[in-house]
Design a binder for these strands. Structure first.
Lengths: 204, 204
DNA sequence: TGACACATACCGACCAGTTGGTATGTTTAT
DNA sequence: ATAAACATACCAACTGGTCGGTATGTGTCA
């Protein structure tokens, strides 16, 4: 039996190129020619698949969700029995995937949203959806952890879920501003400590 | 006696225009012509004051420090007697200046660092210095709060100071991604709760 | 025999940066 | 005191290259 290596279609190669280049250089600094060269496609091919560069931007934001969703859905942090442990395991997982170059672990959606939030609202909206969708995957565990704790909180599960994303995004920015990926880990460490303190039982 | 209204020199007008436009549109999307129009200067005037657009980028990052330093130095959050209260007052101050358009309260340095960290390292470095310099103004109060608490912490004052900036930056990104400034306030609320929990005395 | 997935060649708009000035001080030499 | 020499702060017009986008093919497969 042959190993059927099906070729990756041009559209997907362009989207993967977009993820790589936009994470490294940003949206505006990434030219259509850059994308074509990286994807091994000509300009005609590019505009066959996307009606404009902005159209690609929107598609890239959605592609980002398509890439990351299965990564997190298949990650081992869903295994612990207690909800709080699953939340902490999520943070540990996020910390564990930090390594190597900044562009390899930073968030495309955050990068896009920051850069184009006024000039290209459609792209920003698609990026916002991607972040919100990922945050929403945490809500159930956070809500369960809140319920299991038997405590009262002056925030809701959605707010804390979104906050985890805020801290991650902020950690990436500090890492970029200092040129040191280590700072992204520090941000997660503080976030983990925050979650532990929130749910810590008074006696322990 | 005449009211001597000294005219703002072109160089300063260009720097102020840069802060406004880059915060709104980002660095790459802000053209030299945009800057000239906003500042009321011609292109020749621009390149008299700055040797290149990148040169302006570096100068704008430093200008950002020049603008923000006196703002924070003169703010009322330094007044409380207990160090912890000064730290919390700082966060309350940061929360209070959020309002209106996103471009009016977001951080130029964070925006710059995110966008140009690979393509224009000099600008990113200048932006990083601005963030680090601001964070360092918090270290003394945080250190005092740690000392006054009499507790042991597994992080140092510098780390927590930088983390406050990470959370702020992250809050801005979530706000931009959702198109809602309110999220920046949520991030600060969580950060304030974290600081309170860190320093809360066991008995209270 | 089309519909699809590309490629080649090209265009007009725009953009960073240059050129070659002018007007207004400020310093220096006599 | 004053003129020459220099410095600073701008301006209008231009240039060479780049960018997003288009027009028009060509090969392939159901």
């Amino acid at each position: 039996m042959l190993t059927e290596t099906k070729p990756i279609p041009g559209r997907t190669r362009i989207l993967n190129a977009a993820v790589k280049l936009i994470r490294t250089k940003g949206y505006n600094a990434t030219t259509v020619d850059d994308l074509c060269a990286e994807a091994g496609v000509t300009k005609g091919g590019f505009f066959h698949h996307f009606k404009s560069k902005d159209g690609l931007g929107v598609a890239a934001a959605r592609h980002w969700t398509d890439i990351t969703s299965p990564l997190f859905a298949g990650a081992p942090y869903h295994r612990p029995g207690r909800a709080l442990d699953r939340v902490l395991a999520y943070l540990d997982f996020r910390r564990s995937i930090i390594g190597g170059e900044l562009a390899e672990f930073t968030c495309l959606a955050g990068t896009l949203a920051q850069e184009v939030h006024t000039s290209h609202p459609e792209i920003a909206q698609a990026a916002g959806k991607s972040i919100a969708a990922h945050a929403s995957t945490l809500v159930a565990d956070i809500q369960s952890a809140m319920d299991e704790s038997g405590r009262a909180f002056d925030f809701n599960a959605e707010s804390l879920a979104l906050h985890t994303q805020a801290v991650l995004q902020g950690g990436f920015i500090i890492a970029k501003s200092a040129g040191d990926p280590h700072h992204a880990e520090d941000a997660i460490d503080h976030l983990r400590r925050y979650v532990e303190l929130l749910f810590k039982k008074p006696e322990e």
